[in-house]
Amino acid sequence: MFTTVKDAAGLTQTGIADYVGLSQASVSKVENGLEEPTPQFVQQVSELAGVVPEIFYQHDDLLPGTLFDIFHKKRLTLPAKPLKAANAQAQLTRLHVGHLLRTFDVPVTLPFPNLNVDQHESPSEVAALTRAIWQVPNGPFPDLVKVVEATGTPVILMDLGHEKLRAMSMPGAKGYGTHIILLNDRLPPSAQRFALAHEIGHLIMHEGVASEEMEKEADSFASALLMPENDIAPKLRNVRFRDLGPLKAYWRVSLASLIYRASALGLITERHARTLYMELNKLPGGRKREPGEFTREEPTLVRHVIDAYVAQGYSIPELCKLMVVTEAEFRCRFLGEAPTEGRLRLVKGTVG
């Protein structure tokens, strides 16, 4: 827990040593379990990291780094430091949310499919089966966040520190068996929606088992889930760049995703696809900040649980104690008050 808190806050042993007035070697021995920290040391590090002292004494199982490599989409070019910080922040988020949900009966109205990709013809077939299981009609996928949370899977908007780290997913904490999905709130809505569909593809198809093709498979799943071939093919055949804007608004996907889908389905030539990408790159925001963004889909599951606890008579301090989080962090992360740079944030709701 010490290492996790240290990494999540972006601290170093030397920085901690300077703050608490000890040598770096002493801090190292504490972190490696060779010395028992004093209550004063724990209090000082808690203040420095912005956590409650009780967090260091939690016995929740932390996920090994190998599981993170399997369960979230990691670009090879992502710098190690922000990746380490994001992993650690995700570990703490998993702990906080797990404590909130483990004694609460989360309403589940949709099943979470388990469709191993090796047992089906393609990721596109898995996507079609997923839409059928979730009873999604033809055409654009409705609010994807709402559908995913209907399976009991919390979706959380969080600053993951780097735009290349689009989303992360992980098994739930002890006592709460579902998964938890984190979406990078640095991304525009269209990129968030595709990233969420990508993570859902991993969780449905790969069961935590890595493969060389898993990223391509998850992208193919996401494309087929959001843009079914039979529905979108007539609109993408030899599509022109000026047609992409209205299609983006209707299908609620990015311009780049539409070009990718048209190319993958063989509805445009490779040369045509390159031309469309070139036109997209010429826009002021390029691919990172496309025009015509729509309203973001907002998670509500965790917030509804908090509202339910409050309705039962829980106070904010009691909820903070339950979730092992400071009140300042709780208000920032889960009530949307006075957001702190680089910290997790959920949307505004009914609790005040």
Rank of each mutant, 00 (worst) to 15 (best):
A90D: 09
R287I: 11
M323H: 10
S26E: 13
H99M: 09
I16T: 08
R287K: 00
T109V: 01
P171A: 09
I181C: 03
D118T: 03
G313K: 12
S220D: 11
Q91N: 08
A90K: 07
V126F: 02
E290L: 05
L187I: 03
M158C: 14
G65V: 03
N32D: 09
Y309C: 11
G286P: 00
F241Q: 05
Q43K: 13
E121C: 00
L258H: 14
N138S: 01
K216Y: 08
F56M: 00
A264M: 10
T4G: 03
K73M: 04
L255Y: 03
R274P: 04
T38L: 10
V117K: 05
K282F: 13
G336S: 11
F2A: 00
N87L: 05
V302N: 07
E36C: 07
V310S: 02
K216Q: 12
E229H: 13
R303L: 04
V325G: 11
G98A: 08
T77K: 08
R287Y: 06
A86R: 12
A210E: 05
L182D: 11
T130R: 06
E207T: 10
P137H: 04
A132Q: 15
A256F: 02
L48Y: 02
V108C: 09
I180R: 04
S190T: 14
K282Y: 06
A338M: 06
